[in-house]
Design a protein around this nucleic acid. Structure first.
Length: 349
DNA sequence: AAAACGGGGTG
DNA sequence: CACCCAGTTTT
């Protein structure tokens, strides 16, 4: 059996039972593909169920406020996926009457959809012969064909896409695409794959060359930078606090957080007290500042390590944009913030 | 071409 | 700690 037929046969007897495999509805396939970008099935599955349940059609999603969409996405990371998902839902409803585009060429024009996702939707929903290349496909092909072009280079992207496009089953592109990804996820795993049980172990070049551990090749990632975050948790006597929406370019765009002071170096209570004292909205007000966590919480992201301190500010009264502490869980917040909220029992205040 | 963008899991 | 995950967008 050749590569393509072997992969498809393996899939027929080894595939997992997953909810998005029971439909070819482009809305649901699209939703599943966005959720699964850079996300393992195990982590994405409950989010898929929650979205399908709360937003059964693209019209439900398009009509929802962005805050609600972000709230449902909370904890999954890469929040631009949720913002783009929502924006694209509105676009499809408003411009196309809710009808999903049905060719790779048109699908890839949509916000948040690149080559991988356009290929997945076009093949699964519309039987278009266009090969997916995700992390699984890179791994399977680089090993089987002993290709050491870095997968995170533009040369690698073209080379592997072209190879996958040659290998794809022209009669059932959807079947092949899902099969090779599942094969990568469950059989040709990143670490310690069970090559003894692999149906391709007679023809896999990396295996015969003892290069399984050396492939795929990926150029080095940059090291994460340290940042120092100081969140200010205002608490008034009438149980109000301040939550802000993150604007601008960086992480967690459009999510909410306690007012943040970011510094280059760790900051002590006296210095912070002086900074806060100078705020005009606190002029002539008395407040008490105390540090909640003596050791910083180290929140690790791909590109940043956030050394975080939570400062409690007890104060009699605040005017302006405060919210009741009881409403705090209505807002979409980063995991770093939701962990604090869970740990700091506001009910005791 | 390189960096930014999250959070969870593995060895 | 380094690497990976059904990648895309911005710089």
């Amino acid at each position: 059996m050749n590569f393509t037929k072997s992969i498809i046969y393996w899939y027929s007897t080894n595939k997992r039972d997953l909810p998005w495999r029971k439909t070819v509805n482009p809305y649901k396939i699209w939703l599943s593909e966005i959720i699964l970008q850079q996300t393992q099935v195990k982590q994405g599955l409950p989010y898929y169920e929650a979205f399908v349940s709360k937003y059964p059609t693209i019209f439900h999603l398009a009509n929802a406020p962005e805050n609600n969409v972000l709230k449902l996405w909370q904890g999954l990371g890469y929040y631009s996926r949720a913002r783009n998902l929502h924006a694209t839902a509105k676009h499809i409803v408003n411009e196309f009457n809710g009808v999903f585009p049905n060719t790779y060429k048109d699908i890839i024009k949509l916000k948040g959809i690149g080559d991988y996702t356009a290929s997945a939707i076009a093949s699964i929903c519309f039987n278009e012969v266009t090969a997916v290349v995700d992390g699984n496909v890179y791994r399977v092909l680089s090993r089987y064909f002993n290709i050491d072009t870095p997968i995170n280079s533009s040369k690698g992207a073209k080379e592997f896409k072209s190879l996958a496009q040659e290998l794809i089953n022209k009669k059932d592109p959807a079947l092949f695409n899902q099969a090779i990804m599942e094969f990568g996820a469950k059989q040709c795993k990143p670490k310690n794959p069970d090559c003894n049980s692999c149906p391709l172990n007679n023809s896999c070049l990396a295996l015969s060359l003892k290069k399984i551990d050396a492939l795929p090749v990926k150029t080095k990632a940059v090291k994460a930078k340290k940042k120092y975050f100081n969140f200010l948790i205002y608490i008034t006597k009438d149980n109000q606090t301040i939550l802000e929406k993150r604007e601008g370019k960086g992480i967690w765009q459009n999510l909410h957080q306690f007012p943040l002071i970011e510094t280059k170096k760790p900051i002590n209570a006296k210095t912070l007290n002086d900074v806060i004292k100078s705020y005009t909205f606190l002029k002539n007000k008395k407040f008490q500042l105390s540090l909640y966590n003596s050791q910083p919480v180290i929140h690790k992201l791909s590109h940043q390590h956030l050394y975080t301190k939570f400062w409690i500010i007890n104060i009699d009264k605040l005017e302006g944009n405060t919210i009741p502490i009881t409403k705090i869980k209505n807002y979409p917040v980063p995991v770093l913030i939701s962990n604090f909220i869970e740990s700091f029992n506001f009910n005791l205040v």
